[in-house]
Design a protein around this nucleic acid. Structure first.
Lengths: 244, 244
DNA sequence: CGGCCATTTGACACCTGTCAATGTCTGTGG
DNA sequence: CCACAGACATTGACAGGTGTCAAATGGCCG
């Protein structure tokens, strides 16, 4: 048991590499500039130049792209412990919007803070870049899901992946997790209509696999669900570069 | 007119930033280790640890993920001037496979070469990272396309994007381009069946928009096609970070 | 010439989208 | 306390886009 309260990011990275005292200190110091954002109002708008990155410490955010015809596609979610706009700030571009799904708490990270931290603790830099690479792998897996899975498998896979991510920061388990998303969020994420999302959720529920209701996801049959989704957590679990 | 024969990568980067003599030299020196690969045999296999990155100088490659049920989803294509496995080598992971579509020529780039080049010419580093970020933006746009566009718009958008990429290295124009892909490649890219790809291509052809035949793509009505696809090349054209 | 691969086409089934209506819950204001 | 509006969830009927199956065509190469 740690006697200190660690940030979700610290928790996440610690699951994959043992961080030294010095590294922990640098990591916590990145959380100095605390910010709050209210649900529903975009933090960063498509096309806008990013000024800073954020480390999400509480609440959920989604990043999405709007189409000319008004439909939107959610590309990814950020949950506590995730970086937000990391690439944007390193490369001065932002090609999609960020919207807080609930009221959130985040730490603002300036480019200079980040570069300084990287210079001081190369292992920490590696760990953070690894986390970023993991996020990209999830976007790719998301693409595969939309392209090659039917609605049921898509939904199942998404919920399982989300569960795994949350479990890393102690916010979920194989039993389920709290989830503030609406069925419209799911629709925009999975490339389905809201109506069909509802049908799909009913099916999964009636098959005794998973329940999505009242802001809570409950896994009734984790193994069965993973089978349906052909969920292979390999792309999430790789301890990869850190141990090399 | 340049008196020297420049590599496609040089050509691509030069379109966005004026490189100095020194930078050009470093860039060309990255092309020392020449390699050939034959069509159809994977260069890197899913799960395999990447040993080097490549700069593609001739031919086409696709990166894809295989599903347990045998279907595959193509995530991206690499055409001359593109990096291949850049992220993999920086982070020692490879989460998808690379397959040459035709016989290809590529320059092998070791991590050490790259880091050395970056140290010598920071502006070049920025340019290369910018190109990498552009590739990621294309993956995101691809995801949006599969999630929120119907078959016609998806196909149109894909062909237009490919045309833009090729134009950058002098291999295409608003009139069309050479294209070694089969309709099966298109199907695995767009999340469609090969049969439906054929139907879609026929429709676009009969509407006088574009022809895909005998390894050649011909744009008959570029503007009309862009309208159908709601093609907004903003995410490709941003001169962004380089001029800051 | 005889396979083999890519393309093309038609018929049919089914997954998913659209439209429309209803139900539930919450917060607001009278 | 009740009436009402608004957001989200739920359901049914129907239409349409896309997948699947099957077969025919044509080009290429051994």
């Amino acid at each position: 048991m740690a006697s200190v309260e660690h940030s979700p990011l610290t928790r996440k990275l610690s699951a994959f590499v043992a961080l030294s005292e010095a590294e922990l200190t640098v990591l916590e110091r990145l959380h100095q500039r605390r910010r709050s954002f209210v649900a529903g109002r975009d933090m960063v708008h498509q096309g806008q130049t990013a000024r800073a990155a954020y480390i999400l410490s509480a609440g959920w955010v989604c990043s999405y792209k709007l189409q000319p015809d008004g439909t939107r596609q959610i590309v990814d979610f950020q949950v506590p412990g995730d970086f937000l706009g990391l690439r944007s700030v390193l490369l001065h571009t932002s090609d999609h919007s960020f919207e807080p799904i609930v009221d959130i708490e985040a730490a603002e990270v300036l480019t200079s803070d980040l570069l300084e931290a990287f210079a001081q603790t190369p292992r920490l830099a590696t760990a953070i870049l690894w986390a970023a690479s993991r996020d990209e792998a999830m976007v790719v897996e998301h693409l595969v899901g939309i392209g090659r899975r039917d609605a049921d498998a898509r939904m199942a896979h998404f919920l399982l992946e989300l569960g795994s991510r949350l479990a890393l920061v102690g916010m979920g388990s194989k039993d389920g997790f709290e989830c503030p998303l609406t069925q419209y969020h799911l629709a925009d994420t999975l490339g389905l209509s809201a109506v069909h999302v509802n049908r799909t959720l009913r099916q999964l529920r009636e098959h005794g696999l998973v329940t999505f209701r009242d802001g809570h996801v409950t896994f009734h049959d984790y193994v069965g669900l993973a089978e349906l989704a052909e969920f292979d957590p390999a792309y999430l679990d790789q301890t990869g570069p850190l141990l090399k």
